[in-house]
C-alpha cells in the first residue's frame, strides 16, 4: 500500500472551534484547510466537523448549499471525524434537537443532545479509547451529547468509566463506523493529537485505496 504524504483534510468552518482542529491536523502531517463552500468541500480527502452549536451549523449548512453535497460525499465514503456538535450532525438521529435540525446520517447511532446537562455540569475526565496507545485520553465534555444507541457495524471506542456512577456511567462517548468516527468530547482542546492521528491515518488509507 502506498502512503500519501500529506492528505488534504478540511475542517467545516461555518462556526465553532475550527482553529484548534486545523492546528491538530497540521501537527499530524495533513494539509489542513477550512471548508465553507461546495468547491472547497470537493477538494478535500477527509473532513472534520468541529464543536460548535449544532443548530447553527445545521442552519448554515443549508443556507450555504453544503448540506446535500456533504451528504453525497459521505455516502460515497468520505472519511469524517466529528467532535461534539460534529458527532450530533453525523448521527442518524438526535434526541432533544430542534425538529428542523438536519442529520447527515453517516453514523448509525442515536445521540442525545446536551445529555450531561447544562454548562455547570460540563466536565473533564480520563477515558480509555480503543486504538489509542500511550495511556488515557483527557476527555473535555462541554454541554456534550452522548450516544444513546448504536446500530450494527458501529464500533464503540470509549465509554464514561463505570466508576463515575450516576446516569452518565458507562455511556458511549466515542464511536467509529467504517471511515467515519466521532467523539462526544473535544480532543482538539487538549493539545493531545492522538485521535487526530488515527483519523489522518484513516484518510491516508482511503486516498491510497482510491488510487
Amino acid at each position: 500500500m502506498t502512503t500519501v504524504a500529506a492528505p488534504t483534510v478540511g475542517v467545516l468552518a461555518l462556526q465553532g472551534n475550527v482553529a484548534e482542529h486545523l492546528d491538530a491536523l497540521q501537527a499530524c502531517g495533513a494539509d489542513a484547510r477550512p471548508v465553507r463552500r461546495p468547491a472547497e468541500l470537493d477538494a478535500v480527502d477527509g473532513l472534520v466537523l468541529p464543536g460548535g452549536e449544532s443548530t447553527t451549523l445545521s442552519k448554515l449548512l443549508v443556507a450555504f448549499d453544503l448540506l446535500e453535497p456533504l451528504r453525497a460525499r459521505l455516502a460515497a465514503g468520505l472519511p469524517a471525524f466529528g467532535s461534539c456538535a460534529g458527532m450530533i450532525l453525523l448521527a442518524r438521529e438526535a434526541i432533544d434537537a430542534r425538529p428542523d435540525q438536519h442529520q447527515l446520517g453517516a453514523l448509525d447511532v442515536v445521540v442525545r443532545r446536551n445529555a450531561f446537562g447544562r454548562q455547570v455540569q460540563s466536565f473533564e475526565t480520563d477515558l480509555t479509547v480503543t486504538g489509542v496507545r500511550g495511556g488515557p485520553v483527557r476527555g473535555v465534555f462541554i454541554r456534550a451529547p452522548w450516544v444513546e444507541s448504536v446500530g450494527r457495524g458501529v464500533d464503540v471506542l470509549a465509554r464514561i468509566p463505570s466508576s463515575t456512577g450516576g446516569p452518565a456511567s458507562g455511556k458511549v462517548v466515542a464511536v467509529r463506523q467504517g471511515p467515519v468516527m466521532a467523539t462526544a468530547f473535544h480532543p482538539e482542546q487538549t493539545g493531545d493529537a492522538r485521535l487526530h492521528d488515527l483519523f489522518v491515518a484513516r484518510v491516508r488509507e482511503s486516498v491510497a485505496a482510491a488510487r
Binding site: G16, E53, F123, E124, T125, Q189, T190
Partner: peptide, 29 residues
C-alpha cells in the same frame, strides 16, 4: 448544583470547560 461526575480524575468548572464553551461559540453571534 453538583455534577454526577465529580471523582478524583473527573471535574467540573475547570479552566478547560469554562474557556472551552467560549471556544465552541467562536464564529457565532
Amino acid at each position: 448544583m453538583t455534577s454526577p461526575t465529580q471523582t478524583s480524575t473527573s471535574r467540573t468548572g475547570s479552566d478547560g470547560v469554562k474557556r472551552g464553551l467560549a471556544d465552541m461559540l467562536k464564529g457565532g453571534v
